[in-house]
Amino acid sequence: MNKAGERLYNGLIKENPTFVLTLGMCPTLAVTTSAMNGLGMGLTTAAVLACSNLIISLLRRVIPDRVRIPAFIVIIASFVTMMQLLLEAYIPSLNKALGVYIPLIVVNCIILGRAESYAYSNPPIPSLFDGLGMGLGFTFALTCIGAVRELLGTGAVFGTAILPDSFTPIGIFVLAPGAFFVLAALTAIQNAIKIRGRKKGKEYKKLQSGCSEDCMNCSDSGCSRRFYGTEAKDTGVEVTDLEKEG
C-alpha cells in the first residue's frame, strides 16, 4: 500500500498537474469563476481519470501498441459520457454551470497524458491511485484558483462573504480577462521559484508529463501528435524547422 500513498503524494504535491506540470489549461481557466465550479470540475475530472487509468491499466496487455491512442480516447470518452449523464441526473445545476466543458474533459491532456505515461505501463492498483492523486491535485489547484478569483471578484468564497463591505469587488476577476491575469501571476511565481532554485544550484530536469513538456509548449511538439504514434518524432522536427525559417 506504500506505493499507493506515494502515488497520491506525487499527484497532489510533487507533480501537481496544474501548478507543476501546467497541463489541461483550458478547463483551468474556463471554469474557475468560483470555488464551487472549480471543485465540481476537479472532482468530475478526478473520477474520469481514476476510472480510465484503472481500465487502461487492466487492458494494457490487450491493447495493441499501434492503436493505443484511439483505444485510450474511446475508454476516456465512455467515462466522460457516463459522468455527464450522472451529473445531468443528480446535480443538474453543476452540469448547467460547467456546460460544454464536461464533454471537453475528453481532450484534457492530463487524462491522455497519464494513460500514456503511467497507466499503460504499470499495474492496476498503482494506476488507480495515480489517477486519484493527479485528479485530486487538479481539484485542489482548480479550487484554489477559483477561490482566489471569487474572493477578488465578489468578496466571497464558496458563496459566503469573507471580505468586509468596504472592499469593492474587482469584477474583472470573475470575467474572462481575470483568468489570464491569475494564470500569468501563477506562472510568474513558478518561474521565480525555479530561478531561485537554480541559483542555489538545483537542477530542474524535465518532468514526465506524458505528452510534451507542458501545455504551454504543447504546440511545438504536441500531444496531438500522439495520434500519429510512430511518426511523432519526425513531424516534431518539421515544426521546429519551420519556426526557424519563419
Binding site: I172, L175, A176, P177, F180, A185, N191
Partner: peptide
C-alpha cells in the same frame, strides 16, 4: 523582469486582449 519572461507576459497580453474584446 526575469520571472515574467515567456509565458507570463504572453498571458498578460492575452488578458489585455480579452479586456479589449469585452
Amino acid at each position: 523582469p526575469e520571472s515574467f519572461k515567456g509565458m507570463p507576459t504572453v498571458l498578460l497580453t492575452a488578458g489585455l486582449m480579452a479586456i479589449a474584446f469585452c
